[in-house]
């Protein structure tokens, strides 16, 4: 009885027509709006920087910017050549250091250590904490231990590489661990069941599968290292280097430091040079990332 009457009072009950209740719709709309806002802020910020840098630096953008050495006397033809060399040396060193060390640490922690052991947990905790240490602290560390102190290699590009490698290692370790964790266990088990040693199983199954993720972490880490100025100021990236540096000897400079130096000078033509320097950095970062992404896509499970 009561059932019939309640159905009668809700004649639309059996129909599947009509929209969901207004409250749910409002929530969906609000949710989409928040997502849209997020995308707008992220992309809008990036676009603003690009437009600003391009419009301010474009008048000065030419090949001389890449091929000429810095100069305070001939502002019109001054370039960034030595800083580009410095940056490329430093970054090359960073890449060579962080990929094997970062991947190795991540593989050890994910595949070979007993994750419940005290040691593994201590390492884990420290990596998380290191990721939050300010860059300048790594600069001081580099000055005390790499430039002077036990390593004592002086103010050279290699010292910059080592310092920046320490700075970005936590990032690449964490992202590599994520990538390794994403490898299906069944692959490693399958390899082990065929009599592969644990090392062989990891190297032939886990590493190739995780490679794209590891490379993504490396791209992010290297991009960050490329833009760092603060720690390098402490380990010898001096402002004006008018000769091409070498890796193991001589002073060196890097692009962000160079840009900072030009930007703080009072003359307008130096500021213009600083904006052009930003463009140089953008071009180089774009090149490096394109190469890294091309490399990653080549690895990206070509057989799937």
């Amino acid at each position: 009885m009561s059932i019939t009457s309640s159905t009668a009072s809700l004649p639309q009950r059996d129909s599947i027509r009509g929209a969901p209740p207004a409250g749910e719709r409002a929530f969906s709309i609000a949710f989409s709006a928040v997502l849209g806002l997020g995308i707008f802020v992220a992309l809008g910020g990036l676009a603003a920087i690009l437009i600003w840098a391009v419009s301010a630096g474009l008048p000065r953008l030419d090949w001389g910017l890449f091929t000429n050495a810095p100069s305070t006397a001939r502002i019109e033809t001054a370039g960034f050549r030595t800083a580009i060399f410095g940056s490329l040396y430093v970054i090359a060193g960073v890449i060579v250091l962080i990929i094997p060390i970062g991947l190795g640490t991540a593989l050890y922690l994910e595949e070979f250590s007993d994750r419940t052991s005290r040691f593994a947990r201590l390492v884990d905790l420290n990596i998380q904490n290191l990721a939050g240490v300010p860059a300048i602290v790594f600069g001081i560390l580099g000055l005390a231990f790499i430039v002077r102190g036990p390593v004592g290699i002086g103010f050279v590009a290699a010292a910059g590489s080592l310092t920046l490698a320490l700075l970005v290692l936590p990032t690449i370790i964490v992202s590599s661990r994520e990538a390794i964790r994403g490898v299906p266990r069944s692959l490693k088990e399958g390899a082990l069941a065929l009599g592969a040693t644990p090392w062989k199983a990891v190297w032939t199954q886990v590493v190739p599968y995780a490679a794209p993720g590891v490379l993504t972490g490396a791209i992010l880490s290297v991009a960050r290292a490329f833009g760092e100025a603060a720690p390098l100021l402490l380990v010898g990236a001096v402002t004006f280097v008018t000769f091409n540096p070498r890796f193991w000897s001589d002073g060196y400079s890097v692009l962000p430091v160079m840009i900072y130096q030009y930007a703080t000078r009072p003359q307008a033509s130096f500021r213009l040079l600083a904006f052009a320097g930003v463009l140089v950095m953008l071009v180089l970062v774009l090149f490096m990332n394109s190469f890294a992404i091309w490399l990653r896509n080549r690895y990206e499970r070509p057989l799937q």
């Binding site: 069944s186 692959l187 399958g190 390899a191 069941a193 065929l194 009599g195 032939t204």
Partner: peptide, 29 residues
């Protein structure tokens, strides 16, 4: 255990071919 598993093969519940070619799968062992 590595030597044990070379004598005692295993097939799993869910097929777990490696993301490689058919040939490379069989040639893995």
């Amino acid at each position: 255990p590595v030597i044990v598993r070379r004598k005692i093969g295993m097939v799993f519940q869910k097929p777990n071919p490696f993301p490689k070619s058919i040939y490379d799968n069989v040639a893995y062992g």
